[in-house]
Amino acid sequence: MGVLLWLLIPVLAALAAVLYSGWALRTRKTGDVAELAGYARFREAMERAHSDSDAA
């Protein structure tokens, strides 16, 4: 019975690894829309800052 208990430990660890990897690789529904919009705002702000320094 002790041997089966020791065999159960790696089996449970493998099952936990499979569950974690499935959770970590799940498809997210949000997408990159918010990140791309933020990057566009950042670029616009940097272009404005760059054009302001050229005028000075």
Results as ranks from 00 to 15, higher is better:
W6V: 03
A56F: 11
R26M: 01
V33I: 06
F42N: 02
M46R: 06
A37N: 11
L4K: 04
G38M: 01
Y39R: 01
A45V: 05
W6F: 07
A34F: 10
E35C: 01
R28M: 12
T27P: 12
S21F: 07
M46T: 02
W23F: 14
T27A: 14
H50T: 02
A40E: 10
A13L: 15
S53V: 15
D54H: 11
L7V: 05
A13P: 01
T27Y: 13
W6K: 08
E35T: 07
L36G: 02
V3L: 12
K29M: 11
A24S: 12
W6S: 10
D32N: 13
L19T: 03
G38R: 00
A34M: 12
W23S: 09
L8G: 10
M46P: 00
L15V: 05
L36Q: 06
D54T: 11
L19P: 01
G31C: 06
D52S: 11
L8A: 15
L4I: 06
S51F: 00
G38T: 00
A49L: 15
D52C: 08
F42R: 07
A13I: 14
L5Y: 06
W23E: 07
Y39M: 03
A14Y: 10
E47W: 09
F42G: 02
E35S: 04
R41E: 01
L36R: 04
V11G: 02
P10A: 06
R43G: 03
R43C: 11
D54M: 13
A56V: 11
L25F: 11
G38N: 06
A16T: 07
K29D: 15
R43Y: 03
L12H: 05
D52P: 00
Y20I: 02
A16D: 13
S53E: 13
R28A: 13
L19M: 08
A45T: 06
L25M: 12
R28S: 13
A40S: 07
R26V: 00
F42K: 05
K29F: 08
S21G: 09
A40V: 03
G38Q: 03
T27L: 12
G2P: 02
E35N: 05
F42S: 04
R48L: 07
V3C: 02
I9Y: 03
D54E: 15
L7K: 06
D32R: 04
T30I: 13
A34I: 11
P10Q: 07
K29H: 14
A40L: 04
D52T: 03
I9Q: 07
D32Y: 12
E44Y: 01
E44S: 05
T30R: 15
T27G: 09
I9C: 08
E44T: 01
L15Y: 10
R48Y: 02
T30F: 09
Y39F: 07
R48K: 10
G2V: 13
G31Y: 09
A55I: 12
G2R: 09
L7I: 07
A14K: 05
L15R: 12
Y39E: 05
L15Q: 10
A45H: 04
A56S: 14
T27W: 14
E44V: 01
S53Y: 11
A34T: 12
L19N: 04
L25N: 15
A24K: 13
A49C: 06
R28Y: 10
A17K: 05
